[in-house]
Amino acid sequence: MVKLIDIARVIRSKNSGPFELTFDIIFKDKEIYEMVKGKKAINSELIKKLYKISEDKIIGIYYFDPALAVKFTIVRPLPAGHLGETDIYGAQQHAPLLIAEIDL
């Protein structure tokens, strides 16, 4: 098992419109990225576990070669600005990824 934070250069979250959260993980080099991609190590099981959400809340998981990146997008638990919502820009929802470990 390897910690995501040790192999990624960027781990970030942000709104993709007021009703979605999107997460980008950009890896340090092509070799690491290809390993992650080859194993599909960022997958719906991991996302469901980290964010305590069900499959239908995952909009998509995308491996994007030009940026050596994996992106996934989920339905926001609450739309931006709704009562009880705490992160209008969605910019601080990446923390579970900082402690996540994947099997390479």
Binding site: S16, T22, D24, Y62, F64, A69, K71
Partner: peptide
């Protein structure tokens, strides 16, 4: 750079494709 510009294709959107 190819990385900085392609990484921007991810930014604030649902899918990079």
């Amino acid at each position: 750079t190819p990385l900085s510009v392609s990484a921007h294709s991810l930014y604030e959107k649902t899918s990079p494709f």
